[in-house]
Nucleic acid binder design. Structure first.
Lengths: 97, 97
DNA sequence: AGCATAGGCAAGTGAATACTTGCATGACGA
DNA sequence: TCGTCATGCAAGTATTCACTTGCCTATGCT
C-alpha cells in the first residue's frame, strides 16, 4: 500500500513524470515522452516511460482513462498526503505548509 | 538532496528505523538492532542496520552525536516536510493534516 | 596492561530493477 | 480494407542495492 508509493517515488525519472503531470494533467504516453525529452533532456525509450507509468499507477499516484486509442494519465496526490505524516510528531504536525 | 531523501525512504527496513526513532529518540546502534529484532521480528545483522543508518544520515533524516564509545541517533523530520509539497497543487496544499 | 564492548571499513554475493529490443494488439483515417 | 498511429506484452541485459562475512579501530572497565 504505502510500500508501493515509496517505491514509486524512489526513481528520479518517475518524480519527473509527476512534475510533468502537475504542470499539465491528463497527458498521453507520447506527450509525456516528448516533454521529458525536450524539457529535461531525457532520452528514454517509450517502453521505459510506459513501465514507469505502470509503477506510478500501481501506487495509485496516477489514474488513467482510455479514450479511443489514447490513454490519458491523471495525477492523484491523495497517497502523497498520507505517507509523510507517519513520522511527524504531534507538535510538528500543526504547521505543515 | 531531495534525491537522497526519496532513496532513503524507499527501503522498508529504513522506514521501520524511522518508526523506532519516532517512538524513542537518541538510540544507539545496538538499541535499534535489539528493538527491531524483538518488536518487528527483523533478524538483521548489525552491519546491515549500520548501513541503513548511514543512508538515513546521508539524507539528513537522522542526525548523530558521539558520546564516548556510543553514537546516538536522532530523527530529523525537516526533510520530510519539504519533499511532498512538491506535487501538491495550491488548492490541495491548504488542508494538509 | 588486558579484555570486552561499540562501532567502522571493505570485499563479495544474490536479488531486485531500470532499460532495451522485438513483436503483437487495437483504434482511426484514406 | 489497408496502413498507420498509440499502446501493450515478453524476454534479455546490466546496473543498483541489500545483506553477509571478516577484520580493524577506539573507548571504557577491571
Amino acid at each position: 500500500m504505502a510500500d508501493d508509493v515509496f517505491k514509486a517515488l524512489a526513481d528520479p525519472t518517475r518524480r519527473r513524470i509527476l512534475d510533468e503531470l502537475v504542470e499539465r494533467d491528463g497527458q498521453s504516453l507520447f506527450e509525456i515522452c516528448a516533454r521529458l525529452a525536450t524539457k529535461h533532456g531525457l532520452g528514454l525509450s517509450r517502453q521505459a516511460i510506459s513501465q514507469h507509468l505502470a509503477v506510478l499507477e500501481a501506487a495509485d499516484l496516477v489514474r488513467t482513462r482510455r479514450q479511443g486509442r489514447y490513454k490519458f494519465h491523471d495525477l492523484n496526490t491523495e497517497p502523497l498526503e498520507r505517507i509523510v505524516t507517519r513520522w511527524l510528531r504531534p507538535d510538528a504536525r500543526e504547521n505543515t505548509p
